[in-house]
Simulated assay, not measured.
Amino acid sequence: MISFLDLKKINEPYKKSFQEKTETVLNNGWYILGKEVKAFEASFADYCGAKHCIGVGNGLDALILIFKAYIQLGKLQKGDEVIVPANTYIASILAILQADLVPVLVEPKLETYNIAPDLIQEKITSKTKAILVVHLYGQLAEMDAINEIATRNNLFIVEDAAQSHGAISNLKSKINNLKSTAAYSFYPGKNLGALGDGGAIITNDSELAKILFSLRNYGSETKYYNDFVGVNSRLDELQAGFLNVKLPNLDAENVQRRTIAKKYLAEIKNEKIVLPFWNFSENHVFHLFVIRTQKRNDLQAYLLENDIQTMIHYPVPPHKQKAFPQWNNLSFPITEKIHNEILSLPISPVLTDEEVSFIIEILNKY
């Protein structure tokens, strides 16, 4: 069986280093916001080309805290509208709601699965204050066009970069818009994955960063003195240590993902299958390789019969979720088409050439 994602195999090369890091953390005797978190925050900020990195508990908390920090700064007020792609993972929308803001759904481009810039303007009202851009599946959204819209309408941008670790824009920066703030997840299956939950916020805004450092730690900068109504969402010291071990190899692993993607794109030849768009730049790190087909369930079953495991990211769009009955009658035809047709193929740095070739062969026989 070719696993969709073999996390044991991905982390096997780091096993000895993980054990050594565990010993280091144990021997330090400081287990919350210690040396490993500080070291990772410095390294990841440098990697992303940003001034500040704030380690938090997970990617969802990263987004929530960004919005809450903007509220503390007075740049947002409860009830303000935030534009967000209609086909995103539900976490993007939960973050907006949990900050007492109002999500406004906008259709994606069918070609890229990212938010369609030309559809944003028509959804902007006097209550719109921000755009939450999601770099879905590892491919950067069209930031030049989105920045222009944001500037013209006096909006600020938040980036959900949970799937795009290491993606580089034409500005050669790993944080795609240095005027914005980006949220990352280190869930184990991400391109840079921990062995548990973890997240981080990247920003060049020093005032915002100061508030975020407090908000993640009960709203406290000095122990027992609380300036804000904060939360307990701190990147774990041990997970930070593991991320410190893996970060130096992230770029090489992203190159391997692109190599597999190139082979898929060149050799999958089946008129029943729509391949993903990519301009072959470094703007895509292929967290997922997502194809489309009108008989998605049939294709998935066929692949499984041939010992190839696949996943669906995601089967139900946010506006059709039971959690959002107020949206259930809305129509987003592009989003619905995507969610009905997409299928994610195996793609990871540990997938062998033989496995990739076998997947292509089986797909071409479908």
Rank of each mutant, 00 (worst) to 15 (best):
Trp30Ser: 11
Trp30Ile: 14
Trp30Pro: 01
Trp30Asn: 15
Trp30Thr: 11
Tyr31Thr: 12
Tyr31Gln: 11
Tyr31His: 14
Tyr31Ile: 13
Tyr31Met: 11
Tyr31Phe: 15
Ile32Gln: 00
Ile32Cys: 02
Ile32Tyr: 07
Ile32Asp: 00
Leu33Gly: 04
Leu33Arg: 14
Leu33Met: 12
Gly34Thr: 12
Gly34His: 14
Gly34Ser: 11
Lys35Glu: 15
Lys35Phe: 01
Lys35Tyr: 06
Lys35Pro: 01
Glu36Trp: 05
Glu36Ala: 05
Val37Glu: 15
Lys38Asp: 09
Lys38Tyr: 08
Lys38Cys: 05
Ala39Leu: 13
Ala39Glu: 15
Ala39Lys: 15
Phe40Gln: 01
Phe40Thr: 02
Phe40Asn: 09
Phe40Asp: 07
Glu41Ile: 03
Glu41Val: 04
Glu41His: 06
Glu41Arg: 03
Ala42Thr: 10
Ala42Phe: 03
Ser43Ile: 03
Ser43Trp: 04
Phe44Ile: 15
Phe44Arg: 04
Phe44Asp: 02
Phe44Gly: 02
Ala45Gly: 10
Ala45Ile: 06
Asp46Leu: 06
Asp46Thr: 03
Asp46Arg: 07
Asp46Gln: 07
Tyr47Met: 08
Tyr47Ala: 05
Tyr47Phe: 15
Tyr47Leu: 02
Tyr47Ser: 03
Tyr47Asn: 03
Cys48Asn: 09
Cys48Thr: 06
Cys48Ala: 09
Cys48Gly: 00
Cys48Phe: 00
Gly49Ile: 00
Gly49Asn: 04
Gly49Arg: 07
Ala50Val: 15
Ala50Ile: 12
Ala50Asp: 01
Ala50Arg: 11
Lys51Glu: 13
Lys51Met: 04
Lys51Gln: 10
Lys51Pro: 02
His52Gln: 09
His52Glu: 13
His52Ile: 12
His52Lys: 11
His52Asn: 14
His52Pro: 02
His52Trp: 08
Cys53Gln: 02
Ile54Gln: 03
Ile54Arg: 11
Ile54Lys: 09
Gly55Gln: 07
Gly55Val: 02
Gly55Ala: 05
Gly55Ser: 02
Val56Pro: 10
Val56Tyr: 04
Val56Thr: 14
Val56Ile: 14
Val56Met: 10
Val56His: 10
Gly57Asn: 02
Gly57Met: 03
Gly57Val: 01
Gly57Ile: 00
Gly57Ala: 05
Gly57Tyr: 00
Gly57Lys: 06
Asn58Lys: 13
Asn58Gln: 12
Asn58Tyr: 14
Asn58Ile: 11
Gly59Tyr: 09
Gly59His: 11
Gly59Leu: 02
Leu60Trp: 08
Leu60Arg: 12
Asp61Ile: 01
Asp61Met: 13
Asp61Arg: 06
Asp61Trp: 14
Asp61His: 13
Asp61Ala: 12
Asp61Gln: 09
Ala62Gly: 02
Ala62Arg: 01
Ala62Ile: 03
Leu63Arg: 04
Leu63Ser: 00
Leu63Tyr: 04
Leu63Gln: 09
Ile64Leu: 13
Ile64Asp: 05
Ile64Asn: 07
Leu65Trp: 08
Leu65Ile: 01
Leu65Val: 05
Ile66Ala: 07
Ile66Arg: 05
Lys68Asn: 13
Ala69Cys: 04
Ala69Asp: 06
Ala69Gln: 02
